[in-house]
């Protein structure tokens, strides 16, 4: 392997290049900035988009961590808090149970706010939402370990902290949307509610769509069967 050189033309070089480009100083800086965002939501989320302190790479990392922790929780949280019926667990469905509502929210929020002077772009809404999820992995990782050293008398301690991480995320999402779209408090809350309605509408349309498609497929399939039968 004497002739092996690593340059931008071979796969190793390309990977290394991608790594270097993705996990650069800007990436680490933007990832660290998420910690500033969760403690200073208003200030932080303003800078996130207006000062371009956030990156897609960091947002993706946070989302990935959130999903990862949510899956690890199933296995490593004490059975006092979570009992899992492994036989019926579909991991893809489980991942979808986070990604799908997230996608619905991002699109729904952008679609409604963009009609009413919302300053945020779709990507910015996505980054802001992902940055709001930081408290979840941040609190759930230690909680996962704590759950294994408490008895059910001390379960309240876990439950309260666990609920707190969710509430914190919720507050951050509201704050983030307000700052990204440059909305006032009342308008922001109103558009959060609109976003939820938009999500419901989208779910409805999707259900309709899938049901129509499956009916259509069933029609052509039965046609095919009939045809083959008569041949």
């Amino acid at each position: 392997m004497a002739g092996l050189t690593i340059n931008e033309n071979n796969i190793i070089g390309k990977c290394a290049g991608w790594f270097k480009n993705t996990f650069n100083a800007k990436y680490w800086d933007s990832l660290k900035f998420s910690l500033y965002c969760i403690t200073h939501p208003l200030d932080g989320f303003w800078d996130l988009t207006h000062e371009k302190r956030g990156t897609y790479a960091a947002a993706n990392t946070i989302l990935f961590l959130t999903i990862l922790i949510r899956i690890l929780k199933l296995k490593y949280t004490s059975f006092i808090f979570i009992t899992v019926y492994w036989e019926e667990l579909n991991i893809f469905l489980y991942i979808a149970s986070i990604l799908f509502p997230l996608a619905l929210f991002v699109i729904g929020n952008w679609a409604t706010t963009t009609l009413f002077d919302g300053k945020g772009r779709l990507g910015q809404v996505y980054i802001g939402t992902c940055y709001s999820l930081v408290p979840y992995p941040l609190m759930q990782i230690p909680l996962m370990f704590i759950s294994n050293v408490v008895t059910n008398e001390e379960a309240e301690f876990y439950s309260v902290l666990s609920a707190l991480s969710i509430v914190w995320c919720g507050v951050l999402i509201i704050a983030a949307m307000g700052q990204i779209h440059e909305f006032s408090g009342a308008k922001n809350i109103l558009f959060m509610i609109f976003s939820l309605f938009a999500m419901l509408v989208m779910v409805f349309i999707l259900l309709l769509f899938f049901s129509m498609i499956s009916q259509g497929v069933a029609y052509f399939y039965s046609l095919y069967r009939e045809f083959m039968f008569r041949m």
């Binding site: 808090f81 009992t83 019926y85 019926e88 579909n90 469905l93 979808a96 799908f100 779910v203 999707l206």
Partner: peptide, 27 residues
């Protein structure tokens, strides 16, 4: 309905996903 007995976190999210993807309920 069994399955995850005490899984409450992000329950609404899961429910939305479940409804949208028409997950078969407990056998």
């Amino acid at each position: 309905m069994s399955g995850f007995k005490q899984l409450k976190t992000l329950g609404i999210a899961a429910a939305v996903a479940a409804a949208a993807l028409a997950v078969p309920m407990h056998a």
